[in-house]
Design a protein around this nucleic acid. Structure first.
Lengths: 150, 150
DNA sequence: CATGAAATGTAGCCTAGGCTACATTGTGTT
DNA sequence: AACACAATGTAGCCTAGGCTACATTTCATG
């Protein structure tokens, strides 16, 4: 059966290592997606409420407070946030920068979806997942696309 | 401190359970994404090679063969694939259906990205991650968008 | 037809993200 | 000032997805 197709394993398949790279990248993008969501949300809460409490974060994200706290720990380890016990969460400079990038990317993605004719609700919904997979190149293209059709 | 903002916890925040739902949905969409990739790839391999071997799958996905085999086990548990030891992997009817849907969705996403002006390479790359977060509603909008601008 | 290399499968370990249950801290109200 | 209760934090467990290392099965070939 496999003899029929040959599959030299050293000639046919390695022709596309590209695909493996693509999948790998999509996987990697997934890591970090959660951190991005947290950072963006914390930034929002800080701005609108003056503080970002684990409980609020958990509620907004729809997870248990324990999960939120654990992830906030990761944020700290990654140097994106600071938090003293029982004192709320704050962002480092790096965290703020990331938040800003994530926020503008989110808007851009939503705007493109809307421009393409996606209903507002679905646009918001899907953007939440899509945004984490939009590369800088694509982002730039989105920007041009929107500007050009004003 | 919290008295300052009040946050009655029963009046202000619950106003947007929507966001939690959005995040939750994006998370859920992520589960299943991997299965979709596997199913699509298996379908491709079956069509082009007449068989889908764990080793090839692993190579194409850029993971170890052990990981591929473990995931194939999940595919079987979910009723998407069938495989007898040392005999290659095949799709169930459900698996084929899923593969077809995934494949057409992938094409549509790539086409929209291209239509919006994203370079081919980036379009392929990003589509790999984006496609798993595109709802049916958005998919339909994509279809209309493409048809309308022919 | 025996044998060795490649493919397949198994075991065990790791991290990320979830959860529940329990412990601790802070604070608004009496 | 004390206490109750909400918020916070900790511990321990689970699954998905990765990996490496080792074991087994096939099968092409000498």
């Amino acid at each position: 059966m496999m003899a029929a197709m040959a599959i030299p394993a050293k000639a046919a398949l390695p022709a596309e290592p590209t695909q493996a790279q693509r999948f790998g990248k999509a996987r990697t993008a997934q890591s970090g997606a959660l951190l991005e969501d947290y950072v963006e949300l914390i930034s929002d809460l800080l701005e609108s409420n003056g503080e970002a409490r684990p409980t609020d974060i958990a509620r907004r994200l729809g997870v248990s407070h324990a999960t939120a706290i654990k992830t906030i720990g990761r944020l700290k380890r990654e140097g994106l946030a600071i938090a003293k016990p029982y004192r709320g969460v704050f962002l480092t400079e790096g965290g703020e920068l990331l938040a800003a990038r994530v926020r503008s990317r989110h808007r851009l993605v939503v705007d493109v979806l809307l421009a393409v004719g996606v209903p507002a609700e679905a646009a918001e919904q899907d953007a939440e997942g899509i945004e984490h997979h939009v590369s800088d190149v694509t982002l730039a293209a989105f920007g041009s696309f929107l500007r050009q059709r004003e």
